[in-house]
Nucleic acid binder design. Structure first.
Lengths: 191, 191
DNA sequence: ATTAAATCGTTGACTTGTAAAGTAATTGAG
DNA sequence: CTCAATTACTTTACAAGTCAACGATTTAAT
């Protein structure tokens, strides 16, 4: 059957040198590099599928979905500042997304009485309702995507990605601290 | 010391509900969703750092680096078609990147005598030389980034991400086959 | 109390990505 | 052989991200 033949060719190709972004990882690459490329390949592939589904099913995008998801966790709203850190994007980007979502009536900007520079963004009722629908379906997509992967693999991935996450946050903090240190010594040099 | 205090706060916050994109994963989310969000968070975080380094050290970007990396693996060049699949981006995007890299003299378009629709792109000598420098440093960054993560975690990640990758390719093939099937039955409906 | 520095959100110029439509060349069914 | 479908790349319009510079406000050092 055609289906089977195609599957076979694709699966078999995993034994070869070419599997997308990972192609550049070969025997001569360091393990760290190989882990990173494999991580990136998995992430990109899932991302593409989720993006596609959000577009076709809800005429929306992953960044918008992530934005709403963060606000959904914070019924009192978030300062744009904080939101940009959670989303791991720059402030300018959050400004743009906020403009869109406000225009669509899913989100509102609320003045912060304590700091007049600052805005707080929060879901509107409409935003909360629409997000709930999308989130439910989003979860079904993922369950379907992972269906057939052994539970042990999922557990192991969850576990070890957790370690990696902690490690990365630590490294980031070390870097930030180093930059901070450098900045301070530079400031005091004039004394 | 300020450094220590800052580190402590950041690391400690991992026990709380907020660690970036992963914030939206909580107890009520399905394991599959949590694995995905954690994967995405790790991937994004590493990506940001690599992007930053490529920019400050080499005034270039991750997409350009990935593009050159693919060509470096293929001394005879690649059809743009194939390259876009390896990079997991659309053809239009490859056209744009190619234009840039050709203008910068890192890459050349070569006519394909067998198919006049088609181009083959390959590294120039300059491109090959410059890429070698970047690739070496890129690897050092990653080694540094992963330094301190237990080797066992790296191995486990590499292993399990491999399973995930195979699984995703299979699922994708099933989807494609399904779409193909549907397309065929539609075509034959007129018979 | 003054003022320098840091912070908050916005803006603008630019890059990178997508989707959809277009052009040109190739393939294949009848 | 012919013509319809497919394929390869390009183009266009737009979404989403970056960085750097800016005005307004707050913080903090003197």
């Amino acid at each position: 059957m055609a289906t089977h033949a195609k599957n076979f060719r694709l699966i078999h190709s995993l034994g070869d040198q070419h599997i997308g972004l990972e192609a550049r990882a070969q025997a001569d690459d360091h393990l760290d590099t190989k882990v990173w490329l494999r991580l990136l390949a998995c992430s990109t592939q899932i991302e593409q599928q989720v993006r596609q589904m959000l577009r076709t099913r809800f005429a929306t995008s992953l960044p918008r979905f992530d934005y709403l998801a963060q606000l959904d966790r914070h019924p009192d709203g978030l300062r744009m500042n904080v939101l940009s850190r959670y989303l791991m994007v720059t402030g300018g980007n959050v400004t743009g997304l906020t403009d869109q979502l406000v225009k669509e009536g899913l989100v509102e900007r609320i003045e912060d009485p304590e700091d007049r520079r600052s805005w707080r963004v929060a879901l509107t009722d409409k935003g909360r309702t629409e997000f709930a629908v999308m989130a439910a379906e989003h979860e079904r997509w993922l369950i379907d995507l992972f269906k057939g992967l052994p539970a042990a693999s999922k557990d192991a991935l969850y576990e070890h990605l957790g370690h990696l996450r902690v490690h990365l946050v630590q490294r980031q903090a070390e870097l930030d601290a180093g930059a901070q240190e450098m900045h301070m010594t530079q400031s005091k040099r004039g004394k």
